[in-house]
Computed example of a mutant assay.
Amino acid sequence: MSESFYAVLNDRAVIRISGPDRVSFLQGLVSNNIETVSATKSGYGALLTPQGKFLFDFFVYQQDEDSLLIECERGENGERAADLFKKLRMYKLRAKAELADVTDSYDVIAVFGKDALTNLFDDTAPGTTGRIADGIKAVDPRLSAMGARVLLPKNSLAEMAAIGAAESDAESYHKLRVTLGLPNGSEELEIEKSILLENGFEELGGVDFKKGCYMGQELTARTKYRGLVRKRLLPIAIDGPAPETGTLIMNGDKEAGTIRSVHGSAGLALIRLERVGEDADLVAGDAKITISVPDWVKLPETAA
């Protein structure tokens, strides 16, 4: 039996950017190389403060020869998407680019499970992109193991049954996501505080160090080339009562990290690498915490 599932992610929004300056406009803002986005390749990146701290992360797809689509956080009442839209509009200035919130036109869908990519792609490299009906399908640009992302026009979910995917829910998607160690925007990253390289953006293809200037580039580059990564967002297993987000993880009387999200008995935590070793006895509240390091994560040699 095929192990392929889909979940509609109602916490996601879609913004369209069209016009002749759409690529150059985003290129000066976003941490990744927007020039590589095409009909066959999608991307993942972030918008930072001028000081290099996290504001938004998102996926970028080519809708057609004149338009790009940004898939981003929606926020509980749409506020995160609205804030990103306002920020982009503020920076647009004289650029020949038009912005439109097209969230109501699309379902954003995650396809996951062992066979998630089988009926969608021949090439399963991250970011591989194609068409599905009147929508877009892409291998998750961060990590193929996460499956695929699909943007379909509303009322087109029958396409999911056509590829052999069974209906699931967003929580099942998030449980897999945290097990793999992938952040979900402001759920795990602190706005105006978090640093990309502490949260896996380099390994997950969310930063291009050769593309040239973008907002917040200086801190991101300095963090990499001076080896300043001392914390990492890592998957955790929770044995005991689920701690609240923000709960400190303790190793004896020393702070070893902070819980960033919890989904069932799994979650993500920002871990202070120097405080964690093979003999670590970690707790958060009344729960025992076990850290895992996914294969894709590259820790500093002194912390490996």
Results as ranks from 00 to 15, higher is better:
Asn184Val: 01
Lys53Gln: 11
Val150Ile: 15
His263Asp: 09
Phe201Ala: 09
Gly277Ile: 00
Glu190Ile: 13
Glu255Ser: 15
Leu26Asp: 03
Thr245Val: 12
Ser265Glu: 15
Thr118Cys: 03
Ala110Gln: 06
Glu203Ser: 01
Lys86Pro: 00
Glu35Gly: 14
Tyr91Thr: 09
Asp239His: 04
Leu299Pro: 08
Asp253Gln: 13
Arg80Ser: 06
Asp140His: 11
Pro235Gly: 06
Leu282Glu: 15
Asn199Tyr: 06
Ile15Lys: 14
Lys224Asn: 09
Leu26Lys: 00
Ile163Glu: 03
Leu204Lys: 03
Ala237Gly: 07
Val111Trp: 02
Asp122Trp: 00
Leu189Trp: 06
Glu3His: 04
Lys298Thr: 10
Ala46Leu: 09
Met1Asn: 11
Leu197His: 10
Ala266Val: 10
Lys96Asp: 08
Ser42Gln: 13
Gln63Asp: 06
Asp253Phe: 11
Leu204Glu: 03
Arg12Trp: 02
Gly212Phe: 13
Pro183Met: 06
Gly135Ser: 08
Leu270Cys: 04
Ala110Glu: 12
Leu270Arg: 11
Ala148Gly: 05
Val8Lys: 14
Ala13Ser: 15
Ser2Tyr: 08
Ser168Gln: 05
Ser31Gln: 05
Ala237Asp: 15
Val37Ile: 14
Gly267Asn: 10
Gly257Trp: 03
Val23Ala: 01
Ile271His: 02
Lys211Phe: 05
Ala125Asp: 07
Ile15Val: 15
Lys96His: 04
Asn33Cys: 08
Ile163Met: 10
Lys87Asp: 06
Ala95Cys: 05
Tyr214Lys: 10
Lys231Asn: 07
Leu143Gln: 00
Glu188Asp: 13
Asp140Gly: 13
Leu228Gly: 09
Pro183Ile: 01
Asn32Cys: 14
Val108Ala: 14
Ser42Lys: 00
Leu228Ala: 11
Gly78Ser: 14
Ala97Leu: 10
Leu180Arg: 01
Gly277His: 05
Ser292Pro: 11
Leu99Glu: 02
Leu117Asn: 05
Gly216Thr: 03
Ser168Arg: 02
Ser156Trp: 03
Pro241Gln: 05
Lys211His: 07
Asp11Glu: 13
Phe59Arg: 09
Ala266Tyr: 12
Lys175Cys: 09
Asp101Cys: 03
Met215Ile: 15
Leu29Arg: 15
Ser172Pro: 12
Ser261Cys: 11
Ala95Arg: 14
Ile249Arg: 11
Thr245Gln: 12
Lys224Met: 11
Glu198Lys: 04
Glu255Leu: 05
Ile291Phe: 01
Lys53Tyr: 10
Val14Asp: 01
Val150Lys: 10
Asp11Trp: 02
Glu171Tyr: 01
Arg177Thr: 14
Leu196Gln: 00
Leu68Gln: 00
Ile236Thr: 09
Thr290Cys: 02
Thr179Glu: 15
Leu197Pro: 07
Ala221Gln: 14
Ala165Ile: 13
Leu189Val: 01
Ala13Asn: 11
Cys213His: 04
Ala287Phe: 12
Phe85Met: 12
Leu48Asp: 08
Pro300Ile: 01
Thr103Ser: 14
Leu117Gln: 12
Tyr61Ser: 02
Arg94Trp: 02
Leu84Glu: 07
Leu189Ala: 10
Ala303Cys: 04
Gln51Trp: 13
Ile109Asn: 01
Val8Ile: 15
Ala7Phe: 06
Tyr61Ile: 09
Ile236Ala: 07
Ala95Met: 04
Thr290Tyr: 00
Glu244Met: 00
Trp296Cys: 03
Leu99Asn: 02
Ala269Asp: 14
Asp279Phe: 01
Ile15Asp: 12
